[in-house]
Computed example of a mutant assay.
Amino acid sequence: MGDNLVKVTIKASGDLEYDPGNTVWHGCTVRFVLDPDAGPPTATVNPPDCLVDKKPVTLRMPPEGPTQYDDLVDAVAPSNTYAFTVEVPTPQGNPRLESRSETKNGNLEVTTDPPEED
């Protein structure tokens, strides 16, 4: 994985997994992706204000796709913690909840220092 990429994997439960972590820097690519093995059928990402494009994006499993969305950390985003949400459908099986979604909270920590090279 490149040094300029932070991946946020969305699990079926809506849990978020950050790789390598949730610290980002100016010009860094942030990739939101549905977990191919245990992801929800759809998820709507409401991006944090530190990214260039702040419009919500809906990800879908194939064949509807796309399963991932990339955006850049804005070059003028101040160092701070930026919250975002991901909406995933509630697990199937409960007829009262099947048309509802669950909102998971995440955050990205913007720093002005990119990671050091090994």
Results as ranks from 00 to 15, higher is better:
1 M>I: 14
1 M>F: 15
1 M>L: 12
2 G>V: 12
3 D>V: 02
3 D>R: 04
4 N>M: 07
4 N>G: 04
6 V>W: 04
8 V>G: 03
9 T>I: 14
9 T>G: 00
9 T>N: 01
9 T>R: 06
10 I>E: 03
13 S>T: 09
13 S>W: 02
13 S>E: 07
13 S>F: 02
14 G>F: 12
14 G>C: 14
15 D>T: 15
15 D>E: 15
15 D>Q: 14
17 E>Q: 10
17 E>H: 01
18 Y>P: 02
18 Y>I: 10
18 Y>C: 11
18 Y>K: 08
19 D>K: 11
20 P>D: 06
21 G>M: 09
21 G>A: 09
21 G>D: 12
21 G>H: 07
22 N>E: 13
23 T>C: 05
23 T>P: 04
23 T>L: 04
23 T>Y: 10
23 T>D: 02
23 T>N: 02
23 T>V: 12
24 V>E: 05
27 G>W: 13
27 G>Y: 05
28 C>N: 15
28 C>A: 14
29 T>I: 12
29 T>M: 12
33 V>H: 09
36 P>Q: 06
36 P>K: 01
36 P>W: 02
37 D>L: 14
37 D>I: 08
39 G>D: 01
40 P>S: 00
40 P>Y: 07
41 P>A: 09
41 P>E: 08
42 T>H: 09
44 T>A: 02
44 T>Q: 09
45 V>D: 03
45 V>T: 10
45 V>F: 11
46 N>W: 12
46 N>K: 02
47 P>F: 09
48 P>Q: 06
48 P>D: 00
49 D>A: 15
49 D>E: 15
50 C>F: 11
50 C>D: 04
50 C>G: 08
51 L>G: 02
51 L>T: 00
51 L>C: 01
53 D>W: 01
53 D>E: 05
53 D>P: 04
53 D>V: 14
54 K>P: 13
55 K>P: 02
55 K>M: 13
57 V>G: 05
58 T>E: 10
58 T>W: 05
59 L>C: 07
59 L>P: 05
60 R>S: 09
60 R>H: 09
61 M>I: 06
62 P>R: 06
63 P>W: 04
63 P>F: 00
65 G>S: 07
66 P>R: 12
68 Q>T: 08
70 D>C: 14
70 D>A: 07
70 D>S: 07
71 D>P: 14
72 L>C: 11
72 L>R: 13
73 V>E: 06
73 V>I: 05
73 V>R: 04
73 V>G: 03
73 V>C: 05
73 V>F: 01
74 D>F: 13
75 A>F: 10
76 V>G: 10
76 V>C: 05
77 A>K: 06
78 P>F: 08
80 N>W: 08
81 T>A: 12
81 T>S: 15
83 A>R: 12
84 F>A: 11
86 V>H: 02
86 V>T: 03
88 V>E: 00
89 P>L: 10
89 P>N: 11
95 P>G: 15
95 P>D: 03
96 R>H: 10
96 R>A: 13
98 E>C: 11
98 E>W: 12
99 S>R: 15
104 K>F: 13
105 N>Y: 06
105 N>M: 14
105 N>D: 14
105 N>I: 13
106 G>F: 03
106 G>W: 10
106 G>R: 01
106 G>H: 08
106 G>V: 01
109 E>Y: 04
109 E>G: 01
110 V>K: 03
110 V>C: 05
111 T>E: 11
112 T>L: 12
116 E>M: 15
116 E>N: 15
118 D>C: 08
